[in-house]
């Protein structure tokens, strides 16, 4: 199956801003087992651990526009952190399809789709880039 490259560069509509609550950060930290970030920072605001950035997603829009080849999985992520996320911040997500390619692995021939999400806060600061690497096993292929 040839990869349809026409979706590369496809931009998705920005999400509605999500207001980060101290409760959401606490729930994330409790599950992660991270005590450090529950203490307020110097300005009094609760600061989320860097990995909290990956909790903002717009996969529904993504899967609506990109082909599904079968069972999909998260194959990995590449995340750049530019500014901390604090309780009270309002985070907006914009996303674009960066790459689509095929390779073979333990699960057979697979199509990879890399979607870059950019997180922006209420001050217009770029908070993080999150490159989501999704993998879909190609139907009808061995493995």
């Amino acid at each position: 199956m040839a990869v349809d490259q026409s979706l590369i560069g496809k931009q998705f509509e920005a999400t509605e801003p999500v207001v980060v609550t101290s409760e959401a950060i606490a729930a994330y930290c409790d599950a992660l087992g991270d005590e450090n970030y529950r203490r307020p920072g110097p300005d009094g605001a609760i600061v989320a651990p860097p990995s909290f950035a990956v909790t903002f997603r717009n996969t529904e829009a993504f899967f609506h526009y990109t082909p599904r080849f079968g069972r999909g999985f998260d194959a990995g992520k590449e995340v750049e952190f530019f500014a901390p996320i604090r309780a009270g911040d309002s985070i907006t997500l914009t996303s674009v399809v960066r790459e689509m390619y095929e390779k073979t692995g333990r699960s057979g021939t697979m199509t990879f789709v890399v979607l870059r999400s950019t997180l922006t806060n209420q001050r217009g600061e770029t908070v993080a880039h999150v490159d989501h690497r999704f993998v879909h096993r190609n139907p009808g292929e061995p493995g």
Binding site: Y28, A31, L32, G33, D34, N36, P49, P50, S51, V54, T55, D74, G76, K77, V79
Partner: peptide, 16 residues
């Protein structure tokens, strides 16, 4: 376990 959990644990390994 979600991949995001693994990413969070490895991030925490570094921040700790």
């Amino acid at each position: 376990i979600p991949g995001n959990f693994s990413l969070g644990l490895l991030s925490k390994l570094v921040t700790d």
